[in-house]
């Protein structure tokens, strides 16, 4: 464990909590892509199956349980509790365009052709595109509430810190996880465009981020 990974995990946790609190306190999920949240719940479910088979550390186990619980709570709030505030017509990204290539690739490119490895690889590839429906919704509606942009900012920061973590681990312990790194870089690239908008729009005190 290094400071980059710890900071990354904390940013990830902060992002998930920001979104959950926003939905809970505003009692609305307007502007939130339910599809992205479903994809994140699938990412955690398929990645943390080793929760019951491999014990790595108390931190690892607790964070996995927390991420699973919070992501399912978010999906529950969107599709059950506040479903009447969910504008599904704006959340129109075709998930099959993401799931089919990701499933195919996880069968082609993996470390071992075993169910656990393929599911882990699937979760890595899926995480890199899971934010697409949310970014698509923002480009479609042309705006995002500032809380949603803070959520995306912390999510992007978590990915950027994970890249720093991989650089650090490569130089200090020669650790290199090719699938995770390639997929993580692709995922972070999606956020770069958003980071630019975030800094030029939201941080300039406009409150709402409106796309040009």
């Amino acid at each position: 464990m290094n400071i980059f990974r710890l900071a990354g995990d904390v940013c990830h946790l902060v992002a998930i909590i920001i979104l959950l609190l926003k939905i809970w306190r505003s009692r609305s999920c307007a502007g939130i892509s339910g599809k992205s949240q479903v994809l994140f719940a699938i990412v955690f479910t398929t990645r943390y199956l080793d929760l019951f088979t491999v014990f790595i550390s108390p931190y690892n186990t607790i964070m996995k349980v927390v991420f699973l619980a919070l992501s399912y709570a978010t999906v529950y709030l969107i599709y059950m509790r506040f479903r009447n505030t969910f504008n599904s017509e704006n959340d129109s990204f075709r998930l099959e365009f993401l799931l089919v290539p990701v499933i195919g690739l996880s069968f082609l490119e993996n470390y071992a052709f075993t169910p656990l490895e393929i599911l882990w690889t699937f979760s890595i590839f899926l995480e890199s595109v899971a934010i697409m429906p949310q970014l698509f919704m923002i480009t479609k509606t042309g705006e995002a509430e500032s809380i949603t942009t803070h959520y995306l900012f912390f999510l992007g920061l978590y990915r950027a810190l994970y890249i720093a973590n991989w650089v650090w681990r490569y130089h200090t312990e020669g650790f290199f996880d090719q699938i995770a790194v390639v997929s993580g870089v692709v995922q972070t690239i999606f956020y770069i465009d958003f980071f630019y908008l975030y800094v030029t729009k939201v941080l300039r005190g406009r409150g709402k981020m409106t796309l040009p």
Partner: peptide, 10 residues
């Protein structure tokens, strides 16, 4: 390739 126990990242 990576062994399962090395997968300690979230």
């Amino acid at each position: 390739g990576l062994k399962a126990e090395e997968k300690d990242e979230l």
